[in-house]
Nucleic acid binder design. Structure first.
Length: 463
RNA sequence: GGUCCCAUCGUCUAGCGGUUUAGGACAUUAGCUUCUCAUGCUAAGAACACCGGUUCGAAUCCGGUUGGGAUCACCA
């Protein structure tokens, strides 16, 4: 059975798009193999905990369409799926390691550790815990018992080296001398990430860990933990991090990174997923546009690329436009209406429906709609071109349009073509004047059709 | 700085020793369609970081250099 997971930490206000990229691969791999995809909340850092973060994140996963088979929301056979509710489990396991001689108690004060590291750094040594407490373990344990001192439990890194196979990167070797005696259980009783992931991934029977390459350097520690517990190793696949244009890892300082920001812009979840799928992976037939179902069919973790991709919002928008054009008018109408309703703007349904065919090839995302179509709902108050010296021409246009009894786009077009011929003015210039008087803008949806939608009375008024 | 990872057009990528004048997509430029802007179609420019080696033959294998990135917490 294939079981994968995404384990977000609610230390941000929302899900990072990079997490969605990783979640997508986990999701696809689980589904492809008829397995389960799990969401686990890793909320062990109470100091950085963002209020409402977890709820928002879970909501974002719902919106994006990556449905978890097991999560804090839907529960599951290995509940709870929130680490803050599993404290006893971690403590028990940490203590088990102490009994096995694979971990030890430590009561060193933070400032001593800081100073120690500074000295090591100054001597150009690797900053590592000096094992003071390990060397006096009996005495330390007694101190803790007698005085009820706060303590941490540290992993005892054995000598030797760790070798493991990463699906994406191949064989990786690290000498244990580079590893620090990692804290496993904090003095507040919470586990550190390292204890938490290993224990939970094992207990929740996770078979494949597909996660960002930022975890590659700490994977040896995790493997040491698996070995200490005498547990089987899962398959590791470390995927490359999404990058800013300057190649640094995608960060909110340089780019919008929160997934709901894109969704709130009117980027479709399908388009976002499709775009993200192409970050570090490509369709075997070279396709750019494909559904989630198709992705699941053709995706393979063996095809994941090692190179770190730059996240390109321009291509994302292009792709969103492709999706938009593929949707039927009725769907776009609904999406536009809902999109603006969320912003407390209620648009008249009939007009929106009529305008969709005119603009679906002209907008790339839902938020592009109103800037282009606002003139359908209200008279423009800003005119991009000054028409005050064209009054006579406008009058002629108005007189001509008044004659039209059947107010249809093609009749309007014929009438205006006739007028422009008679007047002998450049067609482009002529129509631009009408365009400005109707929409206030130099760029608009097709004129005749727009005028039909506006209605005769309104058009004459605007002229 | 130590450790680890990475390296094909501006960007996403195909390529997995010869079929390659290195293919596609976004972006850019030009043209066609056209009442604007788009869409659509056509075309153009644009890349194997560098140096060695292996080989009859290297973008593809190996080594080094350079460059980029990640990571070194009682954060994840």
């Amino acid at each position: 059975m294939t079981r994968t997971r995404i384990a977000p930490s609610p230390t941000g206000q929302d899900v990072h798009v990079g997490s969605i990229a990783a979640a997508l691969m986990n999701f696809a791999w689980a589904k492809k193999n008829n397995g389960q995809f799990i969401i686990r909340i890793e909320d062990t850092d109470r100091t950085r905990l963002v209020k409402g973060g977890e709820e928002k994140m879970l909501d974002t996963f719902d919106r994006i369409g990556l449905k978890a088979d097991e999560s804090p929301k839907v529960g599951g056979p290995y509940a709870p799926y929130r680490q803050s509710e599993r404290l006893e489990i971690y403590k028990k396991h940490a203590e088990e390691l102490v009994v096995k001689g694979k971990a030890y108690y430590c009561i060193c004060a933070p400032d001593r550790l800081t100073k120690m590291r500074e000295v090591q750094q100054a001597k150009k040594q690797i900053p590592k815990y000096d094992r003071q407490c390990f060397l006096n373990q009996e005495e330390i344990v007694k101190k803790i018992m007698d005085n009820k001192l706060p303590y941490v439990i540290r992993l005892l890194i054995p000598e030797g080296k760790i070798e493991f196979e990463d699906v994406v990167r191949g064989k990786i070797t690290i000498d244990n001398s580079n590893l620090d005696d990692q804290v496993l259980l904090k003095s507040d009783g919470f586990p550190t990430y390292h204890l938490g992931v290993v224990v939970d991934d094992h207990l929740m029977k996770i078979t494949h860990i597909i996660r960002g390459e930022e975890w590659l350097p700490s994977t040896p520690k995790h493997i040491i933990l698996y070995q200490a517990f005498e547990w089987d190793l899962p398959v590791f696949a470390h995927i490359s991090l999404l990058r800013n244009p300057d190649k640094s890892k995608l960060s909110k300082r340089k780019n919008p990174v929160w997934t709901s920001w894109y969704l709130d812009q009117g980027i479709f979840s399908e388009a976002l997923l499709n775009y993200l799928a192409l970050m570090g992976w490509s369709h075997p037939e070279g396709k750019e546009i494909f559904s989630l179902d198709e992705y699941i069919k053709v995706f393979d973790i063996k095809d994941i690329q090692k190179t770190a991709p730059v996240f390109d919002p321009v291509k994302l928008e292009w792709m969103n436009g492709v999706y938009l054009r593929k949707y039927p008018v009725s769907s776009i109408k609904y999406l536009v209406l809902e999109f603006y309703k969320k912003q407390k703007i209620n648009l008249p349904e009939e007009i929106v429906e009529k305008t969709i065919p005119l603009i679906k090839e002209r907008i790339k995302k839902l938020s592009d709609y109103l800037p282009l179509c606002e003139f359908f709902f209200k008279k423009p108050n800003i005119y991009e071109v000054d028409l005050s010296n064209k009054k006579e021409l406008l009058k002629q246009i108005k007189d001509e349009l008044e004659k039209i009894s059947d107010w249809k786009a093609n009749n309007i077009g014929e009438s205006m073509q006739g007028l422009v011929k008679n007047l002998g003015i450049k067609a482009g210039e002529f129509f631009m004047i009408i365009r400005i008087s109707m929409s206030g803008k130099k760029i608009s949806p097709p004129l005749n059709e727009s005028m039909e939608i506006l209605g005769k009375e309104e058009c004459l008024k605007r002229l």
